[in-house]
Simulated assay, not measured.
Amino acid sequence: ELKLRPNPERPVIEKLIDYEQFCGIPQAKEQEAKQKMDIPEMTVQELKQLIDSGADDFMLIDVRNPHEYEIAKIPGSMLIPLPDIEQGKGIEQVKERLNGHRLIAHCKSGIRSGKALGILKEAGIEGTNVKGGILAWSREIDSSVPEY
């Protein structure tokens, strides 16, 4: 049995703090929602139509990690991981390869690609997010693409 006594030098805790407020979570969520609202989106059906049309005026980037890209990928996509974009190296890769083409980005569900497009937008590169990411692609377009 362990007996505890209050420390007289510490203030008395009368109530718990608002954890999310303390950690800045509402501000982060608000900022993420604001970034997402400013970024155009397209459905996987619209992306499929674009790919099937044979158009070559767009660049499709996948911002997932390399091991995720090995598991499943959308045909014609180019891997530029979000950490590379956050560090600046990926921004340069996009700039080098974009050549006036329309930028389209996807990830697993659309969250990371939205974040990547927000970072790219700050660098002066506009893009469109694929709503639902590769999970939506697998469920709605090509069931042979594995879900993970």
Rank of each mutant, 00 (worst) to 15 (best):
L2C: 13
L2F: 09
L4G: 09
L4C: 10
R5D: 14
E9Y: 12
E9R: 11
R10F: 00
R10D: 11
P11A: 15
P11E: 15
P11D: 14
I13V: 11
D18C: 05
Y19R: 12
E20F: 08
Q21Y: 11
F22W: 14
I25G: 08
I25Q: 14
Q31P: 14
E32W: 15
Q35G: 11
M37S: 14
D38M: 09
I39V: 05
I39T: 04
E41V: 10
T43V: 07
V44K: 04
K48D: 06
K48F: 07
Q49R: 12
L50Y: 01
G54W: 05
G54E: 07
D56E: 10
D57T: 06
I61L: 01
R64I: 03
P66Y: 06
H67C: 12
Y69T: 12
I74H: 04
P75D: 15
P75S: 14
P75G: 15
G76P: 01
S77W: 01
S77I: 00
M78R: 12
P83F: 00
D84C: 12
E86N: 11
E86K: 10
Q87F: 15
G90P: 02
V94H: 02
L98H: 02
G100M: 05
I104N: 03
C107G: 09
R112V: 00
G114K: 00
G114N: 07
K115V: 10
I119S: 07
K121L: 10
E122S: 00
I125S: 00
N129S: 08
A136N: 04
D142L: 07
P146C: 11
P146S: 13
E147P: 03
Y148F: 08
